[in-house]
């Protein structure tokens, strides 16, 4: 890795919130203690908030059912692995509102303790769309989702070892052998 990403400290980031009227981001920060806007470049201008893992289920549920902008479509759930950060495993939820066409990105990051898998509460029970993506994150990054209805590997074979998208998993490239063709001479 060439450059360290700026650290996402829990204390900074509040100063980046835009002025009133309160956005959904402000409301999330207000309602769920410990949430903040990460100081990171979001080149797509999508409002982003990071919440604590213990609040993720309520936060998603609030955004879907109670918040003024009804975010009624779960666009994507994806994982990422940042080995240099304190909380290396990050899960990103992208929500979309059919009425206002607004989008919001909710992030959630956890650390792994020792050899155990990192744990995040699953939202598959409150939003069925998250079922398979969460299985995929479990498969690819080894993040365990508590209360998931059916947490199995989804893409790799059942007896696969390791989690391919973790940074410490090798790409598994095989060296290519080149033969001199017969017509090219010895």
């Amino acid at each position: 890795m060439v450059q360290q990403p700026p650290s996402e400290g829990a204390t900074q980031g509040d100063d980046e919130t835009p002025p009133p009227p309160p956005t959904d981001i402000d409301l999330v920060i207000e309602r769920f203690p410990g949430s903040f806007v990460p100081s990171w470049r979001y080149a797509d201008q999508m409002p982003t908030v990071r919440v604590l893992p213990e609040h993720i289920r309520e936060a998603i549920s609030w955004l879907r059912h109670e918040c003024q902008t009804r975010y009624d479509m779960l666009v994507d759930v994806g994982g990422s692995h940042w080995p240099d950060r304190d909380e290396p495993f990050e899960v990103t939820y992208i929500l979309h509102s059919m009425t206002t066409n607004a989008r919001i990105r909710v992030k959630c990051a956890v650390a792994a303790h020792g050899d155990e898998l990192p744990v995040i509460p699953s939202i598959a029970l409150i939003w069925a769309a998250a079922n398979w993506p969460e299985r995929e994150i479990y498969d690819m990054f080894g993040v365990e989702f508590t209360d998931h209805p059916d947490l199995r590997r989804i893409l790799t074979p059942n007896d696969w070892e390791g989690h391919p998208l973790r940074k410490d998993f090798p790409l598994g490239e095989e060296p290519v052998e080149f033969y001199r063709s017969a017509s090219a001479g010895a």
Binding site: P164, F169, L171, G172, E173, E174, V176
Partner: peptide, 13 residues
């Protein structure tokens, strides 16, 4: 024939 552009862990080479 040789896994083409995807020389990686997931494919049979």
């Amino acid at each position: 024939s040789c896994s083409g552009v995807y020389n990686n862990y997931a494919l049979v080479q």
